[in-house]
Design a protein around this nucleic acid. Structure first.
Length: 513
RNA sequence: GCUCGAUUCGUCUAACGGUUAGGACAAGAGAUUCUCAAUCUCUAAAUAGGAGUUCGAUUCUCCUAUCGAGUACCA
């Protein structure tokens, strides 16, 4: 294995649907590793399954990576020295390599139909065994190892459907190394003769295309999900069969992302089931189903990435908040954990709240301005930023900014019943009327004016400040929640404050004692 | 079934073979506050089980259990 060669890694999704967070994390770790090492990050689209191709998935993948701040050095849009980066556009490359393996005796033609193989599997199953196309049975099946040379030639010439299978060596121990898991060894007698080249669509399978492209694209490290670990011996053997062992990439198999509840790995349907997004961006399926996305739910990409980075990796320090640059600086594959990580939505929300808090008022104000505009409320950028500054430590999601500030732009349409029962008793209303007159007498309503004034009044008269404030809050907001009522009154101004006080008086009236 | 992998608080995780097993989220209690959040303080909470190696094991080895993945002309 070549040491000190340029680090080049790839993220190689198949466009069979939207990328879920497990895929995003794989892309992220590849990206962090590449940047940390000063290497290249490549996007390769593995669309060798013509049956499962989903239109729009490719665009989705790229948009999702872009939203996350994961930048590509080479890819289907970016191009690069090894273009094309879409396997369907490289199809003529693969047959040549498959044939090379046949010639070197590492692979063979097989003519068995899907139906025949199905029947064999069923038969084995009926006897409580499992069928494996391997050394034990390949001599008695329809392939170039068992059939006569003439027969094989005739079948190939006759246009019979054929596949190319890898000829798995018998009773050989494959020794493998994984950066995360260490040394692994396995005997080849437990492995089968995998199909490398399909007849159904004249395309290679993942195993062939992957090895060929990683070699051609000079990939130095393969960082992928744990579900590929069982295929690793095949891949090692393929590199060996091609004579590429010296330039073989190093492997790192990432732990799986598990469901938040129950068992098993996180799947695309879990989002609907548990009410949290499993996709970075909203996805509209061809069937018209909509799956929610982190972006649309109000997560900031930085928070999303931070949360995801720590799901299966930890630098060994107690730092939890990382910018992308800090992640790049701190990341190492050796620190990736071995066991599956259960996704936790509370933690994801906590990260987002932290990031909202540290965002500028201008940025958050701009988000709010848009949301207000959608409700037909026009606010200036300054007003929106000022409103946000009062409540940003209370927001968990970006979309929370709207309900948290709406009363600053709109008078309440109704009054919370519980609060009315609690804070709008006859005596409260008496005090409230006095307060209204005092407010009316002020030049302007500012925190600096009102706060000391009311506190003084309460102190002098011995009136319960809390009840007074809450009656006012009820009149201004309609609910008993939110930041300093003085600050809100200042924000909406004297005219609006008085108008809302009058409206409350008119709507709620004075309850009987 | 077979093969491979994994196993520290409820969850994410930290700990050169030597720590009172640490932190974060969530939970509980208290403080603070005009309300609700936030914030601050505190509390509870874990090395799957059993052997072995060792002066000493969360850490190394083996067995068991549990969980996961793979077992397609899908990736």
């Amino acid at each position: 294995m070549t040491q000190n060669r340029r680090v080049r890694v790839r993220f190689a999704p198949s466009p069979t649907g939207p990328l879920h967070i497990g895929g995003v994390r794989t892309a992220l770790y590849n990206y962090l590793f590449a940047r940390h090492e000063g290497g290249d990050f490549i996007l390769r689209i593995e669309d060798t399954d013509s049956q499962r191709f989903v239109p729009g998935a490719e665009e989705y993948i790229m948009e999702a990576l872009e939203w996350c701040g994961i930048k590509l050095d080479e890819g289907i849009r970016e191009g690069g020295p090894h273009a094309p980066y879409r396997q369907s556009e490289r199809k003529e490359i693969y047959l040549k390599y498959a044939l090379q393996l046949v010639e070197s005796g590492n692979a063979y033609y097989a003519f068995d139909t899907a139906e025949e193989l199905d029947a064999l599997r069923k038969e084995a199953e009926a006897q409580g065994k499992s069928f494996s196309y391997g050394a034990a049975v390949r001599g008695s099946l329809n392939n170039s190892l068992a059939l006569s040379e003439e027969e094989v030639k005739a079948r190939l010439a006759g246009g019979n459907h054929w596949v190319i299978r890898f000829k798995m060596p018998e009773d050989e121990v494959v020794e493998m190394d994984d950066i995360i898991r260490g040394h692994i060894s396995i005997n080849t007698s437990t492995l089968d003769d995998k199909v490398l080249y399909k007849s159904a669509d004249s395309l290679p399978t993942y195993h062939l295309a992957n090895i060929v492209d990683d070699h051609l694209m000079e990939i130095s490290h393969v960082i992928r999900g744990e579900e590929w670990l069982p295929s690793l011996p095949l891949h090692y053997l393929l590199y060996k069969a091609f004579g590429w062992t010296d330039s073989q990439p190093r492997f790192a198999h990432l732990p799986l992302l598990l469901k938040p509840q129950g068992q098993g790995k996180l799947s695309k349907r879990d989002g609907d089931k548990f009410g949290f997004p499993v996709f970075p961006l909203e996805w509209h399926s061809a069937e018209g189903e909509v799956s929610i996305g982190y972006r649309e739910e109000g997560y900031l990409p930085q928070a999303f990435i931070n949360m995801l980075a720590l799901l299966g990796w930890n630098p060994g320090t107690e730092q939890e908040i990382f910018s992308m640059d800090e992640l790049i600086e701190a990341f190492s594959l050796e620190k990736v954990s071995k066991s599956g990580a259960r996704f936790n939505q509370d933690k994801a929300k906590w990260f987002n709240a932290q990031y909202i808090r540290s965002s500028s008022d201008e940025f958050l104000g701009a988000q709010l301005k848009d949301m207000l505009a959608q409700r037909g409320i026009e606010a200036t950028a300054d007003r929106a930023a000022a409103a946000v500054s009062l409540i940003k430590e209370r927001a968990v999601l970006i979309k929370d900014l709207l309900p948290l500030t709406l009363y600053m732009f709109e008078a309440p349409k109704n009054y919370d019943e519980k609060s009315v029962n609690k804070f709008w008793k006859a005596e409260d209303v008496e005090r409230f009327k006095v307060l209204r007159e005092k407010f009316a007498g002020l030049d302007a309503i500012t925190v600096a004016e009102t706060e000391p004034f009311i506190c003084q009044w309460a102190a002098d008269s011995g009136l319960p400040l809390g009840r007074m404030m809450n009656s006012l809050r009820l009149a201004i907001l309609g609910i008993s929640q939110g930041p300093s009522i003085f600050a809100i009154c200042e924000f909406i101004g004297k005219e609006e404050t008085l108008a809302r006080m009058d409206a409350a008086l008119a709507t709620l009236g004075t309850p009987a004692e």
